[in-house]
Amino acid sequence: MKIKTLLASMLLAATPALTLAASGGEQLRSFVQDVRAAKGEFSQRTVDSNGQSKGAPQSGQFVFQRPGQFKWHVQRPYEQLIVSDGKVLYQYDPDLAQVTERGVDQSIGASPAAILFGTGNLEDSFRLVEQASRDGMEWIRATPLQTDAGFSYVDIGFKGSEPRRLELQDSFGQTTYIDFTALEPNPRISASTFTFKAPAGVDVVSMP
């Protein structure tokens, strides 16, 4: 399964040190407030409502800088690149030789990306509910207030003061699991990191 509208949903990063007793909600709010940028690695898989795998697992690297700048680079099993410069989001698929571009506001909206890249109040776009501890992590569930968000809810798991897993439930009963490793909060990031230019010879499609 290729990441399209779920792209921003799959980006999380490390938080500064918190006490291990902090709840998932406390750690999430600290993350939004204190982590301005991060980079790391991810692995991703999707299962259907019966727990059957959908498509091949994916893995790659990501980097983001709030508000609204990020790069999500799928490296395996095929390459795909998603880059946002804070104004325009570019999705490049080398296999299709195509670049799709759209406004960041339209792409992110009330998606989980708003948690990562936004600067406003989380409760303006999501209903946040603490979840029971499991798998050695503290959990918080974010349910979008908008009915057309494209997903039902996202659970975010924290361990050792770092977001370690994201579980995204969509309206078809599919669940996307994303695990994060090698997290580095607030690294020094070059301004050119979020610059994208379409390669020569590819089709560029602008979305409203």
Score class of each variant (00 low, 15 high):
5 T>K: 08
7 L>E: 11
9 S>F: 02
9 S>M: 02
14 A>I: 06
14 A>F: 04
19 T>W: 06
20 L>N: 11
22 A>Y: 06
23 S>F: 02
26 E>T: 05
26 E>N: 02
28 L>W: 05
29 R>Q: 15
31 F>D: 02
32 V>C: 14
37 A>W: 06
38 A>D: 13
39 K>T: 07
43 S>K: 10
49 S>V: 10
53 S>M: 11
55 G>Q: 07
56 A>V: 06
56 A>I: 02
58 Q>I: 08
60 G>C: 01
60 G>I: 01
61 Q>S: 15
64 F>E: 02
69 Q>Y: 08
69 Q>T: 09
71 K>A: 14
71 K>L: 10
75 Q>R: 10
79 E>Q: 11
82 I>E: 10
82 I>M: 14
84 S>W: 03
86 G>W: 07
86 G>N: 06
87 K>V: 11
87 K>E: 09
95 D>Q: 14
98 Q>K: 14
99 V>G: 03
99 V>Y: 07
101 E>Q: 15
103 G>C: 02
104 V>W: 01
105 D>T: 07
106 Q>P: 00
107 S>H: 00
108 I>R: 05
109 G>C: 05
109 G>H: 08
111 S>I: 00
114 A>Q: 13
119 T>V: 11
119 T>D: 14
125 S>A: 12
127 R>N: 13
132 A>L: 07
136 G>L: 07
138 E>M: 09
150 G>P: 02
150 G>L: 02
151 F>A: 01
151 F>Y: 15
152 S>R: 15
152 S>Q: 15
152 S>V: 14
156 I>Q: 01
157 G>R: 03
158 F>Q: 01
163 P>H: 08
164 R>K: 14
166 L>T: 11
168 L>P: 12
169 Q>N: 12
170 D>F: 05
178 I>R: 00
181 T>W: 03
184 E>C: 01
185 P>Q: 05
186 N>V: 10
187 P>R: 02
188 R>N: 09
190 S>R: 14
190 S>M: 09
192 S>R: 13
193 T>L: 07
195 T>K: 13
196 F>I: 09
196 F>S: 06
198 A>D: 10
198 A>Y: 09
201 G>L: 01
203 D>T: 13
206 S>M: 04
206 S>R: 14
